[in-house]
């Protein structure tokens, strides 16, 4: 009896969750008036960065008078493909999306092309051979971010002739930001033999990972001068490890990171970080510009880099109060 009751309960739950997934098709647009309709499929809401990205796009669409149909893929490619197909059926004017993964987009992008709906990629690229499947790709240039971090280091140590020992905390192995940020950084510092990366491991972009790896670095190498972390979170984890070893972060070991999320900016303003290269999620306004141009049939550059800056400790103090994410 109990067993049957539970089975019924479980079946009910499954049905409820299924209908919840299929429910948000939204009222079908398709009214072809002056207003541009943009279908946007977001990766998910996995981090503060991503949430800021979503908010930026929603706000910018409202400000630009663009009708936004927003869909959250919850980290699943099949959800994203479903969303894009539904955008095609609703005959939106432009489709934009941040691909969850790099590959497997040819079929659905071809469908969009056959229906004459232009596609814009945001934040992440796809590996389709046929670049005519999408109009443009707007997002951060990770190699450039790595280079900026390297340039700061070169500038910081320009008067010194001693060897500079660098420890590097890499992002998730194999991910584009990890590969590119490492490449850009090594390209710049490689010009001067005094810079030496003495330890480099992945911290998986997490605080826990950054802390654990840094603890091991500190024991294996007594002479680390600089820490380069591929994102703020790993840097923040490493910060605790450095403090636990009785060293002063920002002085005994200088820290340069990428991202500029609020917690990282706080550490920078407190003098615990030395430099942050911004990786901005606020690409909404730039995206809306592109949407308008693409809709009007104007040609746009194939690659648009998000407007980004860098922060020193003083700049962080000034920028912190109005940091959105």
């Amino acid at each position: 009896m109990l067993r049957r009751a539970t089975a019924v309960l479980l079946a009910g739950l499954v049905v409820a969750s299924l209908s919840a997934c299929g429910g948000d098709e939204g009222d079908s647009g398709g009214a072809k008036d002056e207003k541009i309709t943009l279908g946007f499929s977001q990766v998910g809401a996995e981090s503060g960065w991503r949430t800021a990205n979503t908010t930026s796009i929603q706000d910018a669409a409202k400000a630009a008078g663009i009708d936004l149909k927003f869909s959250d893929a919850q980290q699943k490619q099949e959800n994203q493909i479903k969303a894009i197909r539904s955008f095609i059926q609703q005959r939106v004017d432009v489709i934009a999306f941040s691909p969850v993964v790099e590959s497997g987009w040819d079929t659905v992008l071809k469908e969009a092309k056959d229906n004459n709906i232009p596609v814009i990629l945001t934040d992440r690229a796809v590996d389709s051979k046929d670049t005519s499947l999408y109009k443009t790709f707007i997002g951060s240039d990770f190699v450039l971010e790595g280079k900026k971090a390297g340039e700061w280091l070169v500038e910081e140590y320009k008067d010194s002739t001693d060897q500079v020992n660098i420890a590097e905390l890499q992002g998730t192995t194999g991910s584009a930001p990890a590969i590119d940020r490492k490449q850009g950084f090594t390209e710049v510092i490689g010009a001067d033999p005094k810079f030496k990366i003495i330890a480099s491991q992945t911290g998986d972009f997490t605080r826990a990972g950054g802390k654990e790896v840094m603890e091991a670095f500190l024991k294996a190498h007594k002479d680390i001068d600089v820490l380069y972390a591929h994102n703020d979170d790993m840097g923040l984890g490493a910060l605790e490890a450095i403090e636990g070893a009785g060293l002063t972060p920002g002085k005994d070991i200088k820290i340069v990171t990428v991202d500029a999320v609020r917690d990282g900016m706080k550490a920078l303003a407190d003098g615990k970080f030395n430099y942050i290269v911004e990786c901005s999620p606020l690409l909404g306004p730039q995206l809306m510009e592109l949407v308008k141009k693409v809709d009007a049939g104007e040609t746009v550059p194939e690659r648009v880099v998000t407007e980004e800056t860098t922060f020193t400790q003083e700049q962080a103090k000034a920028a912190l109060p109005e940091r959105q994410y």
Partner: peptide, 15 residues
């Protein structure tokens, strides 16, 4: 094992 990997510096790709 994890700590050993970090300490002796096994490259992340081969970890």
């Amino acid at each position: 094992l994890s700590t050993t990997i970090y300490t002796i510096g096994v490259p992340p790709q081969t970890t």
